[in-house]
Amino acid sequence: MTGPIKQALHSGELVLGTFVFEFATTGIGRLVAGAGAQFVIYDAEHTGWGWETLGRVVATTRPTGVEPYIRVPTAERTQISRALDAGARGIMVPMVDSADQARDVVRWAKYPPDGVRGAAFGVAHDDYAATDNVAYMRDTNARTMVITQIETVAGLESVAEIAEVDGVDVLWVGHFDLTNSMGIPGQFDHPDYLGALDRVAKAARAAGKFAGFMAGSKEEAAMLVDRGFRILAYGGDLWIYQAALRTGLREVRELG
């Protein structure tokens, strides 16, 4: 049993979601669902959120049908296992630089025989239900989304090998960190950066995987789709709110 996002991607659909960095409320998952997003990534890399906060937003998102993922701060077994046991349907791992690192990420995210994820049942990730635990492990292995971020020169150079790792689903470009690593910080029109986007999309396509990105505008999203990206997050909560408020205030201020 694969999850709805994997099914949509493999059917050729463009999959859309968003990031949440700031608004850790019990309503945020329902707001995301009401807006039409298919997934939400709760960020634990650039926020100060603890596991209680992450568990709460994931728990209140799961019933909406939106797939809740957590971006862990580092590629460590404890971070990945806690995110998944808190109820996340998948994990995003920053700065994956090699196929060996990607294989470790997959092993930590999957139950035996596919990995070494620790087994605890009747807790948050299985909705506290008594079930066939062996069948649950098999189904969860198939459903769990593994997103590896390509955001360093080392990761870019190894992207084809990372894409070939069984269990990796998405190669996600971390655009600012990637340009920092390339020595062209913030130069998103630089030909080397644009070539890097193409390289990631090509590697994903060749391996039967998918390229992902956080797009900040319709125009940027169109450029990415043209390059072969198939899973996009439209911005993040704080920037979307600030942009909408700025526009509204400016329009009302012009009345005076």
Rank of each mutant, 00 (worst) to 15 (best):
P113M: 07
D100W: 08
D192S: 04
D126R: 05
M95T: 06
A142V: 09
T131F: 07
D189E: 15
G186I: 06
D169T: 11
T152V: 07
G118H: 02
A124W: 01
S181E: 12
D132M: 05
V168M: 06
V96L: 09
L197N: 10
D85M: 04
D177G: 05
H125F: 05
D189I: 06
D100G: 15
D189S: 12
A88S: 05
S181H: 08
D132C: 01
W172C: 03
G183A: 01
D85K: 01
V105L: 12
P112E: 06
G167W: 00
G186M: 08
A163S: 11
Y111H: 10
A88G: 04
L84F: 06
Y128M: 00
T179S: 07
D192M: 06
V168F: 03
V165M: 08
P185K: 11
A160S: 14
Q187Y: 05
V165G: 11
M92Q: 14
D127G: 13
L84S: 01
L171P: 00
S158C: 12
V106I: 04
A119K: 09
Y128P: 13
Y136E: 13
Q187W: 06
D169N: 12
H125C: 04
D127I: 05
R103K: 07
A120F: 02
D132P: 05
A120P: 01
I147L: 03
V105T: 09
G186D: 07
A120N: 00
P113I: 01
G87V: 07
D97K: 11
D126L: 07
G174L: 03
I91Q: 12
I150N: 04
D100Q: 15
S98F: 01
P94V: 00
R107K: 15
M182F: 03
I91K: 07
I91H: 10
I91V: 15
L171W: 01
D192G: 06
A130I: 12
A86K: 05
L156I: 05
F188I: 09
V106T: 01
M137F: 01
L156T: 06
V123L: 08
V105I: 13
V159P: 09
S158V: 00
A163Q: 11
D177I: 02
M182E: 09
Y128L: 07
S181R: 08
P113H: 00
R89Y: 14
M145G: 14
T131M: 14
L178N: 04
F121V: 07
D104K: 09
N180T: 15
A88C: 09
F188S: 07
R103G: 09
A196H: 03
M95P: 00
T148P: 00
A88E: 05
F121M: 10
D177S: 06
G115A: 03
P191F: 02
